[in-house]
């Protein structure tokens, strides 16, 4: 079939990366699996514990199981809420971004600013912003008579976390959508103008279908990041008040590092990882299928 000599030896250049990955993620992950079936009294001395940690974790009547179930539900609600706000908002912002002239650069830089801020700093900004004594948002809201206290009132805490996430990440969806919009050839718009299409039907029949691929990527990135969110809520609310904003990662860190409960934390990590991996794979399959159908 092919007369050219065929050599795969370039693959050997991948070996250094594999070694790094082995030590940075593969061995730690194997260790987590090992911890998940054993119990320890410290001193690096382990006892076989079978699937008891998993049984504990998956049974909502136990302490850990209840925490895991409620953190999972909270996390799914959080991801759903931020996606429902960020996705339409991001698309709307992208449509409003100018297409020509110096305003393009200025707008894009402004929109990208929140993305460039380290996550702990985002948390600190919002922690101060939301304070009722000196924070602009907290003090102003209480000043006009709205009861707002993100350290004591769960609704305020949720509102703060959701607003923070929207502020932090809508820019990314806007930038992705903008790139998608720029890729639509002018001919489509010209044809729509000739047909006398309304602004809405241009959006509905040209822009939205053309954005499909970009939006799947945006949903994947935003879902994954919000499902694994740790830094910002940990700085702003620390999972409180009570357990109100204690998402999966926050709870996991509390169990693993706060209580040094290795078995429970390991079992939780594995089930958490399984959920993330499954959802990621579903998105990946959808994405590649869209690609192939377009290529065909």
């Amino acid at each position: 079939m092919m007369d050219k000599p065929w050599s795969n030896r370039a693959w050997f250049f991948v070996i250094p990366v594999l070694v790094v990955v082995l030590f940075s993620s593969l061995l730690p992950m194997m260790t987590v699996v090992n911890y998940s079936v054993q119990d320890t009294m410290g001193q690096n001395h382990f006892f076989w514990n079978g699937a008891a940690w998993f049984q504990n974790l998956l049974d909502p009547t136990t302490d850990i199981g209840g925490r895991f179930a409620s953190a999972l539900v909270r996390n799914l609600i959080f991801s759903f809420v931020v996606l429902m706000i960020e996705l339409p908002l991001g698309i709307a912002v992208a449509i409003c971004i100018p297409r020509h002239g110096w305003k393009v650069g200025a707008t894009l830089v402004l929109i990208a600013l929140p993305l460039l801020i380290p996550w702990t700093v985002v948390g600190t900004i919002w922690e101060i912003f939301a304070r009722q004594d000196i924070g602009l948002l907290g003090a102003a809201l209480n000043g006009i008579g709205v009861h707002y206290n993100d350290t004591q009132d769960p609704t305020s805490a949720w509102a703060t976390i959701v607003m923070m996430d929207v502020w932090h990440w809508t820019g990314m969806i806007a930038l992705l959508s903008y790139a998608g919009l720029k890729a639509i050839p002018d001919a489509f718009y010209q044809a729509a103008r000739i047909d006398g299409a309304s602004r809405w039907s241009v959006f509905r029949n040209i822009e939205l279908p053309k954005l499909q691929k970009v939006l799947v990527i945006a949903v994947l990135l935003r879902f994954m990041e919000s499902f694994m969110i740790y830094t910002e809520p940990s700085v702003v609310t620390g999972g409180g008040p009570g357990e109100a904003t204690s998402f999966l990662s926050l709870d996991l860190v509390k169990i693993a590092l706060g209580q040094v409960d290795l078995g429970n934390a390991a079992a939780m990590s594995i089930v958490y990882y399984l959920i993330t991996l499954t959802i990621c794979w579903i998105f990946f399959t959808i994405m590649t299928q869209l690609d192939q159908r377009k290529g065909a």
């Binding site: 194997m30 260790t31 699996v33 054993q38 320890t40 690096n44 076989w48």
Partner: peptide
Amino acid sequence: MAWMAWTWATAGFFG
């Protein structure tokens, strides 16, 4: 390797 706390079951699984 001791820090990884291997068991026969998990070693078999990864094997």
